[in-house]
C-alpha cells in the first residue's frame, strides 16, 4: 500500500522530472520502492539515463537495476525492441542469472509466444519450486491466454504452499468474482480481512460479495461490513453508504410480515441517506435529483 504522503512525494517528483527539473534517478528509485506502475514515465526517463553514458557510469552497479526496471517498463509499453536491448545487455553481464531468465520469459510473454514462455517458466520451477515470482508469472500467463480455470488451478497450487501471501488471495478473489463464484470469493475475502483487518477495501468487497449472494443472513452480515467500512473510512466511502441503503431495503423486503426482532441499528440507513445527500449537495448538486429518485425507488428515503 502506498500512503498518501508517499504518493504526494511521488507526484511532486514526477512533475519536477517532467519539467526537466532533474531528479530523474530519485524518481525512478521511488517508483521502484513503492512498486507503482508508471511504465511510460519510467521508460522515458530511464532510457534517457541509460543513453547518457556519463550519467550511466555514475550509477555504478545500480546501472543493472535500472536496466531491469526499464526493460519491464518497456514491455508494459509494448516497446519490445527496447526491452530486448536491455535484456541483451543484462544477459551479457550476467550470463547465467535466473533473474535475467525471468525477464526473457516475460519478453516471450509480451510477444505473445505463450507456449515458449510456459516452457521457460516450467524449467525454472523445476530448478527452484519456491520461486514466488515465477509462480505468479504463470498465473498471469494463464490469465492472458484467457485460461481462467488454469489460472485458478495455478493460484490454488501456489496458495497451498504460500498461504500467507495476501496479494495472491486478492487475485484469486477477483477471479472468482469475475466467474460469479461468490462463495469461493467470500472465503478469499475473509482470508484478506484476517490478514489486514483494518483495510476498508477488503471489508467493502466482502460486503459486496455477501450482498450479491443474498439471503437474509448474508444481507445482514453485508450491512454490518458496510457499516465497518464506513467506520474505517470515516464515512467518506460512498459505495459503503449506498450499500447500507440497499441492504436495509433488501432486508426490509425479505423480513416483511415477520416479527422485527433484530433492529439493532434503526438509524443507520437514514443517517447514510443524510450523509449521501449532504455529500452530493457539496460535490455534485446537479445530480441530487437523480440521487433522491434512486433512493425513493428503494423506499428508504424516509
Amino acid at each position: 500500500m502506498v500512503t498518501k504522503s508517499e504518493e504526494e512525494q511521488l507526484n511532486r517528483l514526477e512533475a519536477q522530472v517532467d519539467n526537466a527539473g532533474g531528479g530523474a534517478w530519485e524518481y525512478l528509485c521511488l517508483v521502484r520502492k513503492l512498486k507503482v506502475r508508471r511504465p511510460d514515465k519510467v521508460l522515458k526517463h530511464g532510457l534517457a539515463i541509460l543513453n547518457d553514458s556519463k550519467k550511466r557510469s555514475a550509477l555504478g552497479t545500480e546501472e543493472w537495476t535500472l536496466c531491469e526496471q526499464v526493460a519491464v517498463a518497456a514491455m508494459d509499453c509494448q516497446s519490445l525492441d527496447v526491452a530486448k536491448d536491455c535484456i541483451k545487455v543484462l544477459r551479457k553481464r550476467f550470463p547465467d542469472s535466473k533473474r535475467v531468465g525471468r525477464l526473457e520469459g516475460m519478453l516471450l510473454e509480451a510477444k505473445g509466444l505463450w507456449a515458449e514462455a510456459e516452457k521457460a517458466y516450467s524449467s525454472f520451477l523445476e530448478d527452484n519450486p519456491f520461486d514466488q515470482v515465477i509462480h505468479k508469472r504463470r498465473v498471469a500467463l494463464a490469465k492472458a491466454q484467457g485460461n481462467i480455470t488454469t489460472a485458478i488451478e495455478c493460484l490454488n497450487k501456489y496458495l497451498d504452499t504460500f498461504m500467507a501471501d495476501h496479494d495472491a488471495w486478492r487475485e484469486l478473489a477477483e477471479i472468482y468474482v469475475s466467474l460469479q463464484m461468490y462463495k469461493q470469493a467470500a472465503f478469499c475475502y475473509e482470508e484478506l480481512i484476517l490478514s489486514q483487518p483494518t483495510n476498508p477495501l477488503h471489508h467493502l468487497a466482502y460486503a459486496d460479495v455477501l450482498y450479491t449472494i443474498g439471503g437474509l443472513e448474508n444481507l445482514q452480515a453485508a450491512k454490518k461490513y458496510y457499516a465497518s467500512t464506513i467506520n474505517l473510512t470515516g464515512g467518506k466511502n460512498r459505495r459503503a453508504l449506498f450499500g447500507v441503503c440497499l441492504c436495509t431495503s433488501a432486508i426490509g423486503q425479505l423480513s416483511k410480515g415477520r416479527n422485527k426482532e433484530d433492529k439493532d441499528s434503526p438509524e443507520l440507513q437514514s443517517l447514510a441517506v443524510a450523509a449521501l445527500e449532504k455529500d452530493y449537495k457539496q460535490r455534485a448538486p446537479g445530480k441530487l435529483p437523480l440521487l433522491t429518485s434512486a433512493l425513493k425507488s428503494l423506499r428508504v428515503s424516509s
Binding site: 450491512k223 454490518k224 461490513y225 464515512g235 439493532d264 438509524e267 443517517l271
Partner: peptide, 17 residues
C-alpha cells in the same frame, strides 16, 4: 465485533451529517 461496528458507524455518520 461487527454488530458493535454498526453502532459505531452510526456515531461516525451522525458526526459527519
Amino acid at each position: 465485533t461487527m454488530p458493535k461496528f454498526e453502532r459505531r458507524a452510526e456515531a461516525v455518520l451522525r458526526k459527519l451529517v
